[in-house]
Amino acid sequence: MADTTTNTALSGPRGPKPRKRLSRGNIILYSTLFVVCVYYILPLWVMVMTSLKGMPEIRMGNIFAPPVDIEFQPWVKAWAEACTGLNCDGLSRGFGNSVRILIPSVILSIAVASVNGYALINWRFKGSDVFFTILIFGSFIPYQVMLYPIVILLREAGIYGTLWGLVLVHTVFGMPILTLLFRNYFSSIPEELFKAARVDGAGFWGIYFRIMLPMSLPIFVVAIILQVTGIWNDFLFGVVFTKPDLYPMTVQLNNIVNSVQGVKEYNVNMAATLLTGLVPLIVYFVSGKLFVRGIAAGAVKG
């Protein structure tokens, strides 16, 4: 079920091209889609336009109008000067933190989950399917239920509030969806290959590194896309499991924009918001259909 729906979703419409281009139905169809797209694009448009205006122009004008005088100062300020609490070094700090959190989290979570998927398909052991079922059902448990026990575990391990604590949390909560992704993919690799390697004397890790890994590069890319956007966008774990000097970009952004002190600088706020959204947006627009494939795999979990 999982594979057929994903694949057909990606293959595009089937059948011959429509004949008449300007029938009444088509006009209604395309204009509806056009209106919908305007609704979707509008916030991005407003963000970009606001971030390029000066404050006087914002106070006088219309948020949808393009700027009369283009200003890049808000971007500079958002990146390098905006204040959170006592620190006035802008979002660059949050960006750095997010990158430092992102890289080990993506690598570790994907490494663990791909090995899980491999073990679940090719090296089943007693109870392995039970663990997988718990894993999938666990992904529906609200994070709030597990927050405090994890705080205790991390505190006992001495890594509460550190980078590695957060990396482990991302690895744990990324595991259900990624394991499912890899398990489904590995199950489509012919078993004969695995058996032949076994006959040739390859062991657990040998087969993983020499056969499974090289054959599954596309699914690794999908997993990377999924994790990069997911971890970059995380807010809750960042707040709970790190200290202020290690807050990821989303947390810092929220602190900058929703701070109660000082004059509100909407242009700086929007520039900061765009900066934070830029990484997942770039990943999204570059990856195209692979992103769809990732979320479709997530949707048919269970």
Binding site: C37, I41, P43, F235, N254, V257, M270, T273, Y284
Partner: peptide, 30 residues
């Protein structure tokens, strides 16, 4: 069987790539 299906889908799906924080702040402004 519309034309530009990929374009339409790209536009409708991009907000999903953004975080709730970004979403919330943009709409707070609008």
């Amino acid at each position: 069987k519309i034309r530009f299906e990929d374009t339409f889908r790209t536009i409708m799906l991009y907000p999903f790539a953004l975080s709730f924080i970004v979403t919330g702040l943009v709409w707070q402004w609008i």
